[in-house]
Amino acid sequence: MSDQSHLAKNIIDIYKKHGHAWTALRGDFLYEKAWLDHFLSFIPPQSNILDLGCGSGKPIAVYLIQNGHVITGIDSSDTMIAMAQQNFPQQDFPHHQWIQADMRAVNLPKKFQGILAWDSFFHLTPNDQRAMFQQFAKFAEQGTVLMFTSGPSVGEAIGDMFGDALYHASLSQDEYRQLLSKHGFEVVSMVAEDVGCAGHTVWLAKFI
């Protein structure tokens, strides 16, 4: 364990503690729209999408639902899931599910046409990230599209959320490519520090 990876254990508690404040700060501006449109261009209408680290569901799940897709949202933070359930009440959104669970261990009875791990996967330690590719593959069928964000290069980075140390980690681009290939995914597109997407490093891959 590195000097910093122990901070990864605090991520869930941080998002429980600051979930409302972080969601308010995040706002509704969809800077991810171009990437989400790219992601959606590969999946059929009315697809089932697995959103790992869905948060409150705003603004990303809102956009996916507006485009006619069915969302299963997973988040470890009970605060975030409660917000998502409030934002998408069952009586108005009966086909969507919001489940408090750890993406590293969640077990679901179906496969998905789209899998999203946006601004969530990169909070995991390097070893947990490596193990996630088996999870991605478990929920994929032929043609499933996976999109996730990472760091631009190997290493750990500590951000700040309202005074709490916020852990991020990244493998190397080469290792991500190897892990995707090993688990049956083919890279469709990858941009490091995309200036059109608030500097995010984005991976888009298809299960073949």
Rank of each mutant, 00 (worst) to 15 (best):
residue 37 D to G: 01
residue 29 F to A: 07
residue 82 A to E: 15
residue 87 N to S: 12
residue 78 D to C: 10
residue 40 L to D: 03
residue 74 I to T: 13
residue 69 H to A: 05
residue 56 S to G: 09
residue 60 I to V: 14
residue 47 S to A: 14
residue 87 N to R: 09
residue 34 A to M: 05
residue 86 Q to R: 14
residue 41 S to Y: 01
residue 50 L to N: 07
residue 68 G to E: 04
residue 60 I to M: 06
residue 32 E to R: 03
residue 52 L to W: 12
residue 90 Q to S: 10
residue 90 Q to D: 05
residue 38 H to P: 01
residue 68 G to H: 02
residue 36 L to D: 02
residue 37 D to H: 00
residue 87 N to V: 09
residue 34 A to V: 04
residue 41 S to R: 05
residue 81 I to S: 13
residue 80 M to T: 15
residue 88 F to S: 13
residue 55 G to C: 10
residue 82 A to M: 12
residue 89 P to H: 08
residue 43 I to S: 04
residue 72 T to N: 11
residue 52 L to H: 11
residue 31 Y to T: 05
residue 46 Q to M: 02
residue 46 Q to H: 13
residue 77 S to F: 12
residue 52 L to D: 11
residue 40 L to S: 03
residue 24 A to Q: 07
residue 90 Q to T: 09
residue 52 L to Y: 11
residue 35 W to S: 10
residue 50 L to D: 01
residue 33 K to E: 12
residue 64 L to M: 13
residue 61 A to Y: 02
residue 40 L to T: 01
residue 26 R to Q: 15
residue 27 G to S: 06
residue 87 N to M: 05
residue 48 N to V: 00
residue 94 P to M: 06
residue 27 G to D: 10
residue 89 P to R: 01
residue 84 A to W: 06
residue 89 P to N: 08
residue 41 S to N: 03
residue 33 K to G: 02
residue 88 F to A: 10
residue 58 K to N: 10
residue 54 C to Q: 08
residue 80 M to H: 14
residue 73 G to R: 08
residue 25 L to R: 15
residue 48 N to R: 08
residue 31 Y to R: 04
residue 74 I to C: 14
residue 39 F to G: 04
residue 36 L to M: 11
residue 58 K to W: 00
residue 41 S to A: 09
residue 32 E to S: 07
residue 63 Y to H: 10
residue 25 L to E: 15
residue 55 G to Q: 06
residue 64 L to K: 04
residue 90 Q to P: 03
residue 31 Y to Q: 04
residue 37 D to Q: 04
residue 70 V to P: 06
residue 68 G to A: 03
residue 85 Q to K: 14
residue 45 P to K: 02
residue 31 Y to W: 12
residue 57 G to W: 02
residue 77 S to G: 12
residue 32 E to M: 03
residue 88 F to W: 08
residue 61 A to P: 08
residue 84 A to K: 07
residue 51 D to Q: 07
residue 68 G to F: 03
residue 56 S to F: 07
residue 55 G to P: 03
